[in-house]
Design a protein around this nucleic acid. Structure first.
Lengths: 148, 148
DNA sequence: TAGCAATAATTAGTGTGACAAATATATAAG
DNA sequence: CTTATATATTTGTCACACTAATTATTGCTA
């Protein structure tokens, strides 16, 4: 095992993830979906889990809070999302899809599924399981309070 | 196989890749390395392959040309890289490490190896092979002229 | 209840990524 | 030689990631 390999693996992971995202974005653009891939991820999570704070939503989406704030700004401007002030805690917002937002999700959902499938051709069940396991292991290896 | 899974896999891939990069960047910052992870990748490639055009370097690094231009601007400003005009083609530059750049690479190289290893703990040879194969398959699935 | 630490969200600043358009130079076709 | 086309690089614009700092609010504590 050459230590140098780990550098290569890291870069391969980086490039592949970017490619997957970019491919999806290109398809989104071709179909004039009107949202970016990251914005879609937020809409999708909001559709599954309603009435949630930005902090919780950020965690669900795997994004940090400043990033989520800006994505929500854009989604609100587009009319897909509404912020309402939390009754008991005026520091936080409750975020939810608007009527338009819900329509957008149902409209795009099947198309997005098709797009997403493309990346996973020529792979089988075992590959999916291995990949999940490996990526989860990597993720845990880098957990914050894991300093040795 | 639920079609919905592919969406999850895509997001897991995205999150994991970002985590790997972010972990490395935090370590770089703690050590005051004076470069970002992406800038390091460029320095490393330049160290391996000297006297190369920006276009070729971009390909090696897996970045597009505008992005590479901007990273090089920063590295030139920091004094690690020099651009010299190509003798036979004045459109292009030959890019190379400066003395300082070479020193930087030898200084950081062992530390970066250590940092990179962290992500790959608790995985074995088979996992590395599987991961490489799977990621390469995904990459190929999304190759540009592949409009099924 | 006054003061203070913790928390939710935002803002600011820098770097990166993708794409399109602009610039400068090279090469090919006539 | 001139025009057309191709290529290398740069610039501009928008979106996202991460950090640090700021604002508003909450809840604890003395």
């Amino acid at each position: 095992m050459h230590k140098e390999s780990f550098n290569r693996y890291s870069l391969l992971l980086d490039c592949t993830a970017r490619r997957v995202k970019q491919y999806a974005q290109v398809q989104f653009n071709l179909g004039n979906y009107g949202v970016t891939v990251d914005q879609w991820a937020v809409l999708k999570n909001l559709n599954n889990t309603a009435n949630i704070s930005q902090k919780e939503l950020a965690k669900l989406c795997g994004k940090d809070q400043p990033t989520l704030t800006r994505i929500l700004d854009l989604l609100v401007k587009k009319g897909f999302v509404e912020r309402t002030i939390h009754k008991n805690d005026r520091r936080s917002f409750i975020v939810q899809l608007s009527e338009e937002g819900r329509n957008k999700v149902s409209e795009l959902e099947p198309n997005v599924r098709e797009i997403r499938m493309k990346a996973w051709e020529n792979l089988d069940e075992n590959d999916f399981e291995d990949l999940q396991r490996i990526l989860n292991t990597i993720y845990k290896n880098l957990e914050l309070n894991n300093n040795d």
